[in-house]
Nucleic acid binder design. Structure first.
Lengths: 137, 137
DNA sequence: AATAAGTCTATAAATTCTATAGAGTAATGG
DNA sequence: CCATTACTCTATAGAATTTATAGACTTATT
């Protein structure tokens, strides 16, 4: 399951992507409209900024705005940034790979093989879906 | 990501399914071979028993054994029993559905729609894979 | 200068996950 | 029927992660 952080982050991004790109969006605006705790949201947006997805402007007339074309930002990227691995076990992860302590030979682990298949499958769906797609009803 | 409980549970089941079905398998045997904390494993196997997947016998010569044909037990069932929902959000779950507090109309939520698609996709893979398949190298 | 709005650090509350201890119960074999 | 074996049950505790909040600070605008 995705964390609330991830859900909040996705909702916030969809909200921002739907606004006029020339006007920065206020945290408090997103917080109210999407029912996201403001301070929690601040941290999430800051994270998205660190990863180069959002930009921000301080002071009056400031706020957050997208740095990328919503059509080029995939759900896979967003989930990885907000939530972490897409795979069901670390040993089946592409970006967050970690060997199992116990596993003597991963090449012979049927669970590992299967979960890599599941991951690839999920990934292809997540890579097809863009932020732009998500802004459409 | 799957919890350790789930990973342990799956490993234990694969281990049991590989043994002679006429001889109950000892908890301590599984614990040692698969490097699973014994007390934790006890609780997990008890869970699997409650769900009718495993049976047990007390006393000398006792242990755990499968109640079902490994070819009829799917990865989907096991993950649901051990880990919970397969969907990425409660509102996209079939067996553990929960409405989002905030969401005004789910029918119009693009995230909900998309995550249901992802779930269906994952589910079909998980339903195809049986415990028997997992016992094969 | 006043105000608006994001930034940063710290921390705390809540929840979930992982793990362990120990007494209890049932089955077997001798 | 007793000793041993092995699962069962209840309780609990430690650890990690998630969720959330507070408040001082910085930057930008007017």
């Amino acid at each position: 399951m995705l964390s609330k952080k991830t859900k909040y982050g996705l909702k916030a991004l969809i909200y921002i992507a739907r606004q006029d790109p020339s006007v920065p969006v206020l945290i408090s605006d997103i917080s109210e409209r999407e029912q996201i705790p403001k301070k929690f949201l601040e941290a999430i947006l800051l994270d998205l900024k660190k990863f180069g997805i959002l930009g921000s402007k301080k002071g009056k007339g400031g706020g957050y705005y997208l740095l990328k074309d919503p059509k080029t930002v995939t759900a896979a990227t967003l989930i990885r940034v907000l939530d972490g691995p897409i795979a069901m076990l670390p040993c089946a992860s592409h970006n967050f790979y970690e060997r199992c302590d116990d596993c003597p030979h991963e090449e012979k682990c049927s669970l590992n093989h299967f979960l890599i298949t599941v991951r690839d499958n999920t990934l292809s769906l997540l890579q097809q879906k863009t932020l732009y797609d998500l802004t459409m009803a």
